[in-house]
Write a protein that binds this DNA or RNA. Structure first.
Lengths: 217, 217, 217, 217
DNA sequence: CATGAATGAGAGTTCATTCAT
DNA sequence: GATGAATGAACTCTCATTCAT
């Protein structure tokens, strides 16, 4: 992979926007099915039903497709955060977390290899520039959600906590989707992910382990 | 990446063993510096100070190098587990975890991109066959270490707990090494990783746990 | 050599057809000059004045070029058969054979090494599948020509006779073109080839072995 | 056989001769099984049970193995010519030919691909120098045999006749061994080969060509 | 002499990218 | 804009050959 890349031109017209969407969806299918190396730009074009030239009209190079896929994923996650936020009026942190885990698992299970690729290869790229912008939104939204449950959270630094939670969350959902532990049912698996997040957030100061903050009404 | 690959021939003599080691170390440097695609077999050979032919004498193809690097990493982690186990006579789970985090961070910081590559690309490969053998050792050793602290662990299923802990551990250490949160000192960062693991393991059961229908002994 | 190979795409447009022809002609020159091993795909491309990529656009691999050259040769031979057939109204078998030998010699002398390669390497390949289709046309056309002279032919099984004649014909023409006997003029050489074919076809039934069929009182 | 103890000096040569033979036989197997390209010198060495270095001790390069195989074949053919000559006291040309065809077919059927390779690739090589020496012996011996049947032969130039007969013979035997016509029994096939040779040799001078006596209705 | 690890030139092939149509 | 034929740099991998042991 070379360098960070934004779409070459912003699709102004409806047709263009549709074309870009078509290409991105094709890219999602192709990258999920073949991995980064196996995914050729020509194949993406063929699957999208357009010519390679058209792909390059909107994406200056192969990595730009990956960047676009990342943004697509971020949008997806933002939507989920939105939904959960909306649906959960006075829900507890546990309930909210459970819901997020369940919804995210659905997303990752739909295209596990692509998600792994996005999670893994992107930090490698010099694209962090482009990414941090998109990722920032997820970070901010997540932090906001956590701050709403500030009372239930023992960790003092909420920025750091958000960072850690996002990492754990992504990784565990990835793992559960792509490489689940053998012989474990879905429910305990989701439960374990929630536990990991909840456990971290609610961990009392060292020594005070027994009295968890969630014990309070 | 193609398929799983074992070393082509087992290095029997001292000279060969040395050569293989040289090649693997060169591969580590090259993969860490250039990523999977950027790492060419010719470059690995050049860095190792041998000819391409010699690389292919011992590794049937490029992916075999990655597999070897994975095994090298696994050996590394096993050594760390061993050391921590030996050093920690009656240490608490927290102390043991802190030590593991510190030592692992050193390993990952030495070659962060390689570690990311190993963590990310390998599950993609069909090499899980070969890998599971090597990874199993880490899993078993980790589980054994956890079981020694059984009393401090609230999670009922120790296999699942080991799976989750290993994932969290690897991911958070990777992240801390490759993409640390801005403005966070090393100490709190390490602390956060330990908290995540400890929090998950020691999470007291929610008051409603007894009623959960899936919680079978 | 790997496996049988048809052209990757049928050249629909005039430009493509011209390109394919150019490549095949270049391949003919290169294979004739360097043999199978010495002929590199890059050299074929260079001689054709195109890029390697263009060669692979139409021929999936090196062997596909050989297959194409075989088909080119078959077409050539068919054309000759056609011409001879057309020109020879009531010609005798001898006259027809003489003409075929003369024309074929011209073809083989133009690129003797290529002809040898086609004659020799192809049966080795698994390409007999693809070849038999093309070769069949030559066989059928030859058989048809022979059957027109049925009265002059003593061999009972015309299929077998065609098989034998084609083999002798190809081999002797090859030999005469590539490795002629020293000190023999062209005319007696051509005559000898015709004699071989005529002699076989007109050989009287066994029992008349001692003398030629014309020995009859 | 290893118990035999000859003077200490002599075995060195004997051993070398044996080694050379071993290598050549291994080469025969390998070239027959894999063709020229597929036959690697390392494989030949492995099959021979010696090291590559030993192969290169006696054969300066890969083509030297082919040359040796050609000489082996020539010796084989000479032996057959010898046998036939010895066994056939007052045999007719037909009888002699039949015997030669039968014996040669056995040889070629044992390693058809190798024979094709020798027949086909060698003229291509620059080894014609070395070959003509070896081939000359076969040529001379064949000519001698033909001259013994001078009375039965109509062709005026015996050198040319020998040349033509050898070519036809080799080609037809090759073809019969490697690529026989479908649905033809062995006997008629051998018969056809003999017919081809006999027909050529005994063909009466032109002009005497009469309507074939085997004309069918 | 025998060995076989080491060599490295060079081959076939792919695929991101361009640009004339 | 859209197309897709054409490009060619660059990669993985092979194998004839050498030479230190």
């Amino acid at each position: 992979m070379k360098g960070a890349q934004k779409p070459r031109k912003e699709p102004r017209q409806a047709r263009s926007r549709f074309l870009v969407e078509t290409i991105v969806e094709a890219a999602a299918r192709v990258f999920d099915a073949h991995g980064y190396d196996g995914a050729t730009t020509n194949l993406v074009a063929r699957v999208a039903g357009v010519s390679v030239g058209s792909v390059y009209q909107y994406f200056p190079n192969k990595d730009a497709l990956v960047t676009a896929l990342h943004e697509r994923h971020v949008r997806h996650m933002l939507r989920i955060l939105e939904e959960v936020d909306a649906a959960a009026g006075g829900a507890s942190l546990r309930e909210t977390t459970d819901l997020l885990v369940a919804k995210s698992l659905d997303v990752h299970r739909a295209e596990p290899r692509l998600q792994r690729l996005l999670h893994a290869d992107l930090p490698t790229l010099e694209q962090q520039r482009a990414l941090s912008a998109a990722s920032r939104a997820v970070f901010d939204r997540s932090r906001q959600l956590l701050s709403r449950h500030r009372a239930e959270i023992a960790q003092p630094d909420l920025d750091l906590a958000t960072y850690v939670v996002l990492r754990m969350f992504e990784e565990l959902v990835h793992a559960a989707a792509l490489d689940p532990p053998p012989g474990v049912e879905d429910e305990p698996l989701r439960r374990a992910i929630s536990d990991a997040i909840l456990g971290y957030l609610t961990l009392a100061a060292p020594g005070a382990r027994a009295g968890s903050p969630t014990d309070r009404p």
